[in-house]
Simulated assay, not measured.
Amino acid sequence: MRKLIYLTIMAGLVLMSCQNNKEYKVRGEVANEAFEGTNVYLQKMTDDAMIITDTSVVRNGEFSFSGNAEVAELRFVTLDETVNAEHDIRVPVLIEPGKINVSFDTIVTVGGTEVNNAYNNMRQEQQALVKQIREVVERFNAAQSEGTLTESLEAEVNQEYDNINKQLIELNYNFAKNNINNELGQYLFITSSSMFEPDQQRDILNNASDSFKAKENVKHIVGRLDNLERVAIGKKFVDFTLADPQGNEVSLSDYAGQGKYVLVDFWAAWCGPCRREMPYVVSAYEKYKSKGFEVVGVSFDQDHETWTQGIKDLNMTWPQMSDLQYWSSPVVDLYAIVGIPHTILLDKEGVIIEKNLRGDSLEAKLAELMP
């Protein structure tokens, strides 16, 4: 009888142990007293919206969630959005068995389990790099507004920006690659994929599960990646037909592959960086158009008058085309464009030889091609 009782107790302990192996506990801290007594939400992201899966309350600057995690899943810990806060009020967390810590302060941190610790370390490095980028941009803007921006300073600032940005890309790439089979790594990949080079995206996806690659938003990324490779340097241009300012149909092939070097400039009148870049394009066009250089402007504007006024204001005397569909234009996906200005330089046969030449680099390349 004693043996039977002993075995029953041991079986119960084993069962409890198995159950506890799936238990998670989230312990959170909120430094801002304005959140005292307000709700904190554990949310799941769907294709349509954020769905609340659990609710807690901030008491004495603390809150908590607990439950069982059958599988590790991505959730977002979100503070009350009605409270005016200077810092982040939402942070992604991988809900997995174990103790998870979340702290909302001037810096938001999350940790406690292996994946969350790794994400937190990456996130802190990420924020430090973003801060450096902001400082570089502020330095550039200050010099520009004060009239002290020299060519050498601009080149120095651009190089510094590029170096920091490369570190940021590498940081995101490494985390996404190493965590592509958990939902936190998948979330980072989906939200950051456009910053990765095509070979980096393929490398990450090669390690991903079939179920992840079957998701609609991932299919879209793969489709964009296919388009990127179709219009990579060394590939011939992909033709499309839009309307010129007078409403006549024109095709890229009317200019590309016709024996001239052609810069295809994707822009919009509402785009500040496009406007700042345009004087360099105008200068290059005036200098090299007689030597066999052409520019074709492709606008992502929505309004015809705004588009044509932009052409006039920016002294753009080269061919223009648009369907006035903004980011819904089929050209966006066709050329895998994620931001403007975006340019591609075609050789005389219509082969892509350069992309996104900025500032004086366009004239430098043309000087090399047409001495």
Rank of each mutant, 00 (worst) to 15 (best):
E156Q: 14
T150F: 04
I190Q: 13
E135L: 08
T82L: 10
D88Q: 10
E156C: 02
N181S: 10
N60A: 13
G67K: 05
Q124S: 12
L129V: 02
K177A: 15
L74M: 10
E156D: 15
T191W: 01
F65T: 09
V91E: 03
Q132W: 01
R139C: 04
L74D: 03
F189C: 05
L129Q: 07
S194I: 02
A176M: 05
S194D: 07
R90C: 06
E86S: 14
V115Y: 05
Y119S: 02
D105M: 11
I180M: 10
R134M: 09
L171Q: 11
I169P: 01
E170W: 01
L153H: 03
A85M: 06
V130S: 08
V77A: 06
L74A: 05
T109K: 06
A69K: 06
M122E: 10
D88A: 12
K131E: 13
V136E: 07
G185R: 02
N174M: 09
E114F: 01
E114L: 05
Y173C: 06
G98E: 08
K166G: 01
A128R: 09
S192N: 15
N121I: 04
L153I: 07
L168Q: 08
T113K: 08
V130R: 11
K99W: 00
F189V: 07
Q124E: 12
E170I: 02
S152T: 15
E62W: 00
G111V: 05
R123L: 07
I169T: 14
S145K: 15
Q127V: 04
T150S: 14
N120S: 15
Q132M: 13
E96Q: 15
F63E: 06
V91R: 04
R134T: 08
E160K: 15
N141Q: 15
R123V: 00
V93F: 03
V157S: 10
F189A: 04
V115A: 07
F63P: 04
V157K: 07
L168S: 07
E70K: 12
Q124T: 13
S64C: 12
L149T: 04
N172W: 00
I169W: 03
N117W: 03
V115Q: 05
N101D: 11
D80K: 05
D88V: 00
I89N: 06
L74E: 04
N174G: 00
A72E: 14
Y161T: 02
N179I: 08
E125F: 01
N179P: 07
V102D: 01
V115W: 03
D80R: 05
K131W: 00
S64T: 15
A72G: 14
N68R: 15
Q132L: 13
A69C: 07
V137N: 12
N120K: 02
V77S: 05
I180W: 08
A176V: 06
D162A: 14
K166D: 15
V91T: 15
L171W: 09
K99E: 12
S64V: 09
E160I: 06
T150K: 03
F140I: 01
G185T: 02
Y173Q: 06
T82I: 08
E96M: 12
N182E: 11
E170T: 12
G61Y: 06
A72K: 11
H87S: 08
S145Y: 05
E86F: 06
T78Q: 09
N84I: 12
S145L: 10
